[in-house]
Design a binder for these strands. Structure first.
Lengths: 223, 223
DNA sequence: CCTACCGATCGGTAGG
DNA sequence: CCTACCGATCGGTAGG
């Protein structure tokens, strides 16, 4: 142990640096496509040094996943507090959900890969720690249906799963899929993503052929 | 060479079998998570036999991708011929699109993995051979907007990208994500996926609280 | 946390 | 000479 002064000077200790590098490399190349040596090189230590902090490559993977889920559990409750079945709230919450993943696409990439590489473990995750959050959002939507704010043929549980999945993969591979959009890709990509999620939930008051922004107050039109 | 009779008797030759096994294994474990020996074991031959047909593991990956794209190019034109901006047509075309991927989820899994593992190559694919198909669908939607069948705030290019992405990932990881739905998961999963894609495109005539299927002629309801 | 290694297995290729 | 493989092993590298 070092002195109390040094404790605050080194909050980013070795283990944290290793998990950060591993998250980035697992996201880019996958678990099998990343060697312990790759991580050691990224951190600037030797391979045995990595395996001193994490007894196996497998334990390093679990640490990466736990780091992502911890960040999730820290952010999601605050995000859900904002959620009600009003249109303005939806925009705010959805934008925050996007920002949460977009702020570090590597998290989304790791999660998408995990679903492909380890389906059974991911199922247990979905049926366990993740389930309550999905159910909470589904209940919000169900409440919005009763009050007439949402379409009544929405399947709240399935809707939440699909939209979360769409946000995940859209974030994970945004750099790739935006290549299919000819110009102003980033803005249109995010905008349409939010529009789809919203249009599948909220009935529109205005006619499809009318152009006047009749009721919405400050719609950020393209300039 | 053998006699002409034997030529027709062996349409599923060694190369075809190898590509089929490689597709399945790459889908489940990824390119780096699959060894040439794994593929050899799956086919029932030795490793050098695999590397006789495909000079390297890398060339085998390209053969797998080409097989998927060939199947795509064979099916998509017929599928697009059906597409017009009518609601009934949308149901039929979207169902076929789902069936196309759902009939072999491994294809979707390989494509999702490819987007993560080789972003630059995937970008080139999207901007090259895939682009015309996306543009064609986008033009259909644009036409539907002009005739008032679709919302006028749909971004056709971005919509096509997102919905294709959603169908891809929903197919690739359906077994996993359905675990988050408590009961009757498969039916509700597919049904809500189609509903989201459709609700983001077609304005609804009926009020959100009404239940009667007012105008649709032969909706394929659950039996 | 390093140097120095292990059992095994990697993708790929030799001669036959 | 060709093809479609085999048993064995190449030089390197994996996780530990």
């Amino acid at each position: 142990m070092v002195g109390p002064r040094a404790k605050l000077a080194a909050p980013s200790d070795a283990g944290t640096q290793i998990v950060a590098a591993a998250t980035r490399l697992f996201a880019a190349h996958g678990f099998d496509g990343t060697t312990v040596q790759d991580i050691a090189d990224a951190v600037g230590v030797t391979k045995p040094a990595i395996l001193h902090h994490f007894a196996s490559k497998e334990q390093l993977r679990q640490a990466v996943l736990e780091g992502i889920l911890a960040h999730w559990n820290q952010t999601l409750p605050r995000l859900l507090l904002k959620a009600t079945a009003s249109e303005a709230r939806f925009d705010a919450v959805f934008e925050e959900l996007l920002d949460f993943f977009a702020s570090d696409p590597d998290r989304a990439r790791v999660l998408v890969r995990e679903g492909l590489d380890r389906p059974e473990e991911t199922k247990r995750l979905l049926r366990g720690p993740v389930q309550p959050w999905l159910q909470a959002v589904a209940r919000y939507i169900h409440g919005g249906q009763k009050s007439g704010d949402h379409y009544d043929d929405v399947d709240p549980e399935a809707y939440v799963v699909h939209i979360l999945q769409l946000v995940l993969v859209a974030t994970a591979s945004s750099a790739v899929t935006q290549a299919a959009i000819t110009k102003d890709a980033r803005r249109r990509y995010v905008r349409e993503l939010a529009r789809i999620a919203k249009a599948a939930l909220f009935p529109k008051q205005k006619k499809p052929t009318s152009r006047r922004p009749s009721r919405r107050s400050s719609k950020p039109k393209e300039s």
